[in-house]
Write a protein that binds this DNA or RNA. Structure first.
Lengths: 140, 140
DNA sequence: TCCGATATGTAATATCATTACGTTTTGTGC
DNA sequence: GCACAAAACGTAATGATATTACATATCGGA
């Protein structure tokens, strides 16, 4: 299950490098840095950071991968099959490292309202919560 | 005006290095990277990145400075005189580099609602909009 | 088949941040 | 004032993240 070879791409064909990077992220149980991905893919012929960054660029354009700005790391998108979607938010556990992707239409709308009122033309939205996930908060 | 020696600190006395770093950020018309700050303060005796990062850490704890996660850079807080405040958001212009700080209580509340519903214990919130500010959007 | 767009390989370099260790300054109780 | 502990500081080295530059290869459509 969750095979990296599934078609998430609206018909856009992924290259070998892109499939490998996406697969690494889908297999991981949390965010991976570009250099962690590089290390995971050494055996597949990866040699340089740029190979990873280039694949990540394309995967992000396709909406299959998100960057977690406050971690300088990347996660595969939680949405099924490359289905189009708007802005998403992340909750990042500082204890276990887990990341939960969610989306709140009300939050997105209110930020859009602010932008409209200011004449700001938004291209991308970053929403990240840092803290303790339910499990780790109970354990603490 | 806007002198770095004003008291923004609830009685907490800033050190010389902290005053210099805060002053650099208040004088700048946009976000500065830690290394840019270092370069600005060479003449004041700064030699190493750690001097900047240490001052930034304290200033951030005091709420006088914010980090822009998606830029790996820092801005002085727009609030007057170190007055306590909750989560803030930033709108970042990708053309002119300007950053507008704002805060939306409704957005903060809805994120808090989500967190409560999930048992997530939030410690920090990052909200950043990337795009074009009103001025640059019109010019485009 | 030709050609342009896209993707790739590799090396070098730029940028951002922390660890480690020792010294100095500052605030506080006496 | 003096001793002590906490905080801040100085410096060097290193680690982590990301991009530039340039040459080559592959894929798809006219």
């Amino acid at each position: 299950m969750n095979s990296p070879t599934h078609d998430h791409t609206h018909g856009h064909k992924l290259t070998r490098n892109q499939v490998l990077v996406l697969g690494a992220l889908e297999t991981a149980d949390g965010p991976l840095s570009a250099y962690s991905i590089l290390d995971l893919l050494r055996d597949d012929g990866f040699r340089a950071p740029l190979q990873v960054y280039r694949a990540l660029d394309t995967l992000r354009e396709l909406g299959l991968v998100h960057r977690i700005e406050s971690l300088n790391a990347f996660v595969s998108c939680a949405h099924p099959a490359g289905q189009a979607h708007g802005a998403v938010a992340f909750a990042i556990c500082e204890n276990c490292g887990g990341v939960t992707e969610f989306s709140r239409q009300d939050v997105v709308k209110q930020l859009a309202d602010w932008a409209r009122s200011e004449g700001f033309e938004a291209h991308a939205t970053v929403i990240e919560l840092r803290g303790l996930c339910g499990t780790c908060a109970k354990a603490a």
